[in-house]
């Protein structure tokens, strides 16, 4: 954890958003928590980063964050991806907040596409950047239609789509953004996390807040809430697994990034959660490729 002595730019309010906007977002968050899995429309503001680059997650974080928080920001599981660095720097500057890469130390974890490997704990808040909040959107493009489907709990279209994929592929397709039913009522997109991460939402200790800026929706999964990935009795939900262990830390159970090593088809797999992998290596775990140049300079920056 690096203690921050960040200066707040005077031109903007604390955490960038004005207080009226924060109140509006806070009210939406409370309704989202009270109706788990339901997408609350909110007056999403234009942010200084482009739509699709985390505007929803940034607005949610800006509405909840305070100087006592410890903030972690990941993209694809990693703290050092460009957009995660950029967003973390934004909050370190405008919210005067300490940042960390350690999942266990964070009070707010903003993420794009992953849930960390380390178990989440009570009091932690996950903030998801959501490109498309509507799980039914690719089955039905019209908001007027999908809103009615949620209102009357008509999810036949979703089950039909899963069934069709079973017929076509012999299993349920879909690797990321796999739909879930929250508290047996609302169908919800968990954002494009791999389905590997879906089980972490079920009865989680943490509060999960989802922000879709461009689509102007906020939704939530409170702690200790049933979150069920859709499946069929004879085609049960299953998650990804790898034959290979992490090349760096040797972990056999984490979600992996595939790294192409050359143009002859050689590749390796490493943990997508960079903080988790780093901690395992620090604790003495070593994968088959450990000891090479790759882990001797973990902080080195290499320009692409």
């Amino acid at each position: 954890m690096n203690a921050q002595q960040n200066r707040k730019p005077e031109a903007y309010n604390y955490a960038y958003l004005d207080e009226q906007t924060k109140r509006m977002i806070r009210r939406a968050i409370l309704k989202a928590v009270a109706i788990p899995g339901y997408q609350v429309p909110f007056g999403s503001r234009e942010m200084p980063v482009p739509y699709g680059w985390g505007t929803g997650g940034i607005q949610v974080t800006a509405a909840i964050i305070g100087p006592d928080d410890v903030y972690k920001c990941i993209d694809q599981g990693a703290d050092d991806t460009t957009n995660a660095v950029s967003i973390r720097r934004f909050f370190a500057r405008v919210a005067d907040v300490a940042t960390t890469e350690r999942t266990q130390d964070a009070t707010i974890i903003q993420t794009r596409h992953r849930i960390p490997e380390a178990p989440l704990t009570q009091g932690q808040i996950m903030v998801y950047q959501v490109p498309q909040p509507e799980p039914l959107r690719f089955l039905e493009p019209r908001e007027t239609e999908t809103r009615a489907m949620h209102a009357y709990e008509e999810y036949g279209l979703q089950y039909l789509s899963l069934y069709e994929s079973v017929s076509a592929f012999g299993r349920i397709a879909g690797g990321a953004g796999y739909p879930v039913l929250v508290d047996e009522r609302y169908l919800m997109s968990p954002s494009p996390i791999p389905k590997f991460d879906n089980p972490k939402l079920h009865q989680s200790e943490a509060l999960h807040l989802f922000g879709a800026g461009r689509e102007k929706r906020i939704y939530a999964v409170p702690p200790h809430t049933d979150v069920r990935s859709l499946d069929f009795e004879d085609y049960p939900f299953e998650v990804q697994s790898w034959d290979e262990v992490c090349g760096l830390c040797g972990c056999g159970t984490s979600y992996k990034d595939e790294v192409i090593l050359d143009d002859e088809g050689n590749r390796m797999f490493v943990c997508s959660d960079s903080a988790y992998c780093g901690e395992r290596r620090a604790a003495g775990h070593a994968g088959p490729l450990a000891g090479h140049a790759l882990d001797s300079t973990p902080q080195e920056e290499t320009l692409p």
Partner: peptide, 24 residues
């Protein structure tokens, strides 16, 4: 502004989703 952001967000890494697709 919405359209440009969303089309161009495809520049951001999608390793995780792509790995899931690759597996499948």
């Amino acid at each position: 502004v919405e359209a440009s952001g969303f089309v161009q967000h495809l520049k951001l890494p999608h390793y995780v989703d792509f790995q899931a697709e690759l597996q499948f």
